[in-house]
Simulated scan of single mutants.
Amino acid sequence: MTEHKLPAWSSYTFQYQGQLRGRTKIIFVNAFCAPPPANARKQLVVVLDGGPCYFTLKYDPGQRKFFDLQFNGVA
């Protein structure tokens, strides 16, 4: 397995989206360190590959827990 260093935290842009998981309200977090495209304020940025520059995770505010952290792979 190859290790990849995370980019500087300050280089990331974050997008947040409220979602329902069954009856549970969660917050979907989308993160990327590339400059955001013009439509990033209105549409989730979806990137395949890209390694640790791109990741998603979920947050359950009721339980105050993050879960399902997933970094993109590298082709």
Score class of each variant (00 low, 15 high):
residue 2 T to R: 15
residue 2 T to C: 12
residue 3 E to L: 15
residue 3 E to H: 13
residue 3 E to D: 10
residue 3 E to C: 09
residue 3 E to T: 10
residue 4 H to Y: 15
residue 4 H to V: 05
residue 4 H to K: 13
residue 5 K to N: 10
residue 5 K to L: 12
residue 5 K to M: 10
residue 6 L to W: 08
residue 7 P to F: 02
residue 7 P to C: 03
residue 8 A to C: 09
residue 10 S to Q: 14
residue 11 S to I: 02
residue 11 S to E: 15
residue 11 S to G: 05
residue 11 S to V: 01
residue 11 S to A: 15
residue 12 Y to N: 03
residue 12 Y to E: 01
residue 12 Y to K: 06
residue 13 T to K: 11
residue 13 T to W: 11
residue 13 T to M: 10
residue 14 F to V: 01
residue 14 F to Y: 15
residue 15 Q to E: 03
residue 15 Q to M: 03
residue 15 Q to N: 01
residue 16 Y to K: 08
residue 16 Y to L: 15
residue 17 Q to W: 05
residue 17 Q to G: 07
residue 17 Q to A: 14
residue 18 G to R: 14
residue 18 G to V: 12
residue 19 Q to P: 01
residue 19 Q to E: 15
residue 19 Q to G: 05
residue 21 R to F: 09
residue 21 R to I: 03
residue 21 R to T: 01
residue 22 G to Q: 07
residue 22 G to K: 09
residue 24 T to I: 11
residue 24 T to Y: 11
residue 25 K to C: 05
residue 25 K to F: 14
residue 25 K to I: 04
residue 26 I to G: 00
residue 26 I to Q: 05
residue 27 I to V: 15
residue 28 F to V: 02
residue 29 V to A: 02
residue 30 N to G: 00
residue 30 N to L: 02
residue 30 N to Q: 05
residue 30 N to I: 00
residue 32 F to K: 01
residue 34 A to I: 10
residue 35 P to M: 03
residue 36 P to D: 04
residue 37 P to R: 11
residue 38 A to C: 07
residue 38 A to Q: 14
residue 39 N to R: 09
residue 39 N to P: 00
residue 39 N to G: 04
residue 39 N to C: 04
residue 39 N to L: 10
residue 40 A to D: 02
residue 40 A to Q: 05
residue 41 R to G: 14
residue 41 R to V: 05
residue 42 K to V: 11
residue 42 K to H: 14
residue 42 K to E: 11
residue 43 Q to L: 09
residue 44 L to M: 08
residue 45 V to A: 02
residue 46 V to A: 10
residue 46 V to N: 13
residue 47 V to G: 03
residue 47 V to Q: 12
residue 47 V to E: 13
residue 47 V to A: 08
residue 47 V to C: 09
residue 48 L to M: 09
residue 49 D to S: 13
residue 49 D to C: 08
residue 49 D to I: 01
residue 50 G to Q: 07
residue 50 G to D: 07
residue 50 G to N: 08
residue 51 G to Y: 04
residue 51 G to S: 07
residue 51 G to N: 05
residue 51 G to V: 03
residue 51 G to A: 05
residue 51 G to Q: 09
residue 53 C to G: 10
residue 53 C to V: 00
residue 53 C to S: 10
residue 54 Y to L: 08
residue 55 F to K: 04
residue 56 T to H: 12
residue 57 L to Q: 12
residue 58 K to C: 07
residue 58 K to S: 08
residue 59 Y to P: 00
residue 59 Y to H: 06
residue 59 Y to C: 01
residue 60 D to C: 13
residue 61 P to M: 06
residue 62 G to I: 03
residue 62 G to R: 13
residue 62 G to H: 10
residue 63 Q to F: 04
residue 64 R to P: 00
residue 65 K to T: 03
residue 65 K to W: 01
residue 66 F to E: 04
residue 66 F to D: 02
residue 66 F to N: 03
residue 66 F to R: 14
residue 66 F to G: 00
residue 67 F to V: 00
residue 67 F to W: 06
residue 69 L to N: 07
residue 69 L to I: 04
residue 69 L to C: 04
residue 70 Q to F: 09
residue 70 Q to T: 05
residue 70 Q to R: 15
residue 71 F to K: 06
residue 71 F to V: 01
residue 72 N to D: 07
residue 73 G to I: 03
residue 73 G to W: 11
residue 73 G to A: 09
residue 74 V to R: 14
residue 74 V to F: 12
residue 74 V to I: 15
residue 75 A to T: 10
residue 75 A to F: 13
residue 75 A to H: 15
